[in-house]
């Protein structure tokens, strides 16, 4: 049964007609054409689908459309402002913190949500924060380096 649900997507108001229990990831990818958010497990186990809902990182494969009614959703497409990469994106680019790139959107979103709160995080805190995101290519070391340096760039110099 379709419902009309409104929320903010990457700073813009949107209204979607879709069942309230439909998973957000399908709404994003299918209805709204934002395919930067990836699907890896559909069970909250890999983090490839991570987006921010009111600044909290959540798996969009396990978050319903109804859950985000009236909230602010941020996806990888909404991170860069006026063509300027966000500090986390920049760090991932510079450190080559990816190989196939399939985990990258989710990694960046999870890292951004975390660093916003804790730019001065230690390496082991970063490890803990990123533990829910899988990377099959083994880009982990560079991802940690990138997140650490993004934290510094965001003013969290330790």
């Amino acid at each position: 049964m379709n419902a009309t649900v409104s929320f903010t997507l990457n700073g813009q108001p949107v209204t979607v007609a879709s069942p309230r229990d439909r998973m957000l990831v399908w709404v994003l990818r299918d209805e709204l054409g934002l395919t930067g958010t990836k699907v890896g497990c559909e069970a909250g186990l890999c983090g490839a689908c991570t987006v921010l809902v009111d600044f909290e990182a959540v798996p969009s494969c396990s978050t319903t459309l109804g859950d985000v009614a009236g909230k602010a959703v941020l996806t990888i497409e909404g991170l860069a402002l006026d063509g300027h990469l966000n500090p986390v994106q920049k760090a991932f680019q510079e450190h080559h913190a990816f190989q196939c790139g399939y985990c990258t959107s989710g990694m960046i979103m999870a890292a951004w949500a975390f660093l916003k709160k804790r730019p001065k995080a230690t390496r082991s805190e970063i490890v803990e924060a990123m533990e829910g995101n899988l990377c099959r290519c083994g880009a982990h070391v560079r991802i940690l380096d990138a997140v650490e340096s993004a934290g510094k760039a965001m003013g969290g110099v330790r």
């Binding site: 990818r29 054409g33 934002l34 395919t35 930067g36 958010t37 990836k38 699907v39 996806t75 990888i76 497409e77 991170l79 860069a80 990469l85 994106q89 920049k90 991932f92 680019q93 080559h96 990816f98 790139g101 399939y102 990258t104 959107s105 960046i108």
Partner: peptide
């Protein structure tokens, strides 16, 4: 040298088979 696929991959623009619309 900078990876050529970097920008596409950090912005979510890189197109995988499932992203075709």
């Amino acid at each position: 040298v900078p990876r050529k696929d970097a920008l596409a991959k950090v912005t979510g623009a890189a197109q995988y088979a499932g992203d075709l619309r």
